[in-house]
Amino acid sequence: MLSLLRGSLSILGFLALWEIAARSGLVPTDYFPAPLLVGETLVAEIGRGEIVSAFVATFLRALIGATAASLLAIAMALLAARYAIVRRAFDPIAEFLRPLPPAALVPLAIFFLGLGWKLYGFILVFACFWPVYLNAAQALAATPRVQVETARSFGYGDWAILAHVRLPAALPTIFIGVRMAASIGLIAAIAAEMIAGRDGLGFYLMDAGLSLRVPETFAGLVAAMVAGLLINALVMVLRALTIGWHVQLTRMEAGA
C-alpha cells in the first residue's frame, strides 16, 4: 500500500516536472506536448472513437495470437518432453528460427496471407511461440528425479507422469515464457500494423506521427502503454488462478 502511494507520488512528480518544463518553454512543445494537453487529446480521441477501435483491434490480435502460440508451444514442448528424439530434432531448428525478427517476415507474408487476420495470426504465432516453447521444454526436462520416480512407483505411466507431475512442476517456468509471449505479442502486433499499415494502434501511431499530429501520437503511446499493462495483468491473473499454490509457497518461504 505504502509502496503504491510512493509509486504514484513519483509518477505524479515526474508528470508535474514535465508539465512545468513544457509551459516554461524549456522543451519544444511542438515535439514534446505537456501531459495535460496529451490527456485532453486522449479524452477527445476516445470521444471520436478511432483510437478505441484501434486499441481493441491491436489488443485482441496480441491476446489471441499469444494464447494460440502458447497452447501450440506447450503442446510441442510436451511432445518434446515425452519423446527425446522430438526435442533433439526440433531444438536446433528452434534456436535458428527464434532470433528471426517477426517484422522481417511481414513484407513477404503479405503476398501469401493478405492483409487480414491470416497475416496477424502467422506473425503473432511465430513471434510468441519461441519463449513459451523454450521455457516449457527446459522446465519439463528439469523435473526432479525423485518426483518422477515416486509417481512411477505408484504405477503411473509415462503420459500420466507428464500430465500429473512434470507439467504442474513446470508451470511456474512456463508462465515466465507466457509473460514474455504476451509482451512480444503486443510488440509484434504493433510492428506488423505499422508495416502493413491499415488499422490498429500501430497504424494509428504511424499515421499521427507522420502527419505531425504530435499530441495524438503521444495519446497513442499512452494507449499502447495501457495495452501493455493490461495484457501483463491478464497473464498475472491467469497465473494466480492456475498456479496460486506455487506463488503462495514461494511467498511463504521468502516471508517466513
Binding site: 517484422a103 509482451s183 503486443l186 495495452a227
Partner: peptide, 21 residues
C-alpha cells in the same frame, strides 16, 4: 523505479513516431 515500471510496458515499436520527430 515507479517510472521504469510505468514506461516498461510501452511496446518499443510504438516509440518509432516519436523517435522520428
Amino acid at each position: 523505479e515507479p517510472l521504469v515500471n510505468m514506461l516498461r510496458p510501452i511496446p518499443p515499436p510504438a516509440v518509432a513516431p516519436i523517435a522520428l520527430l
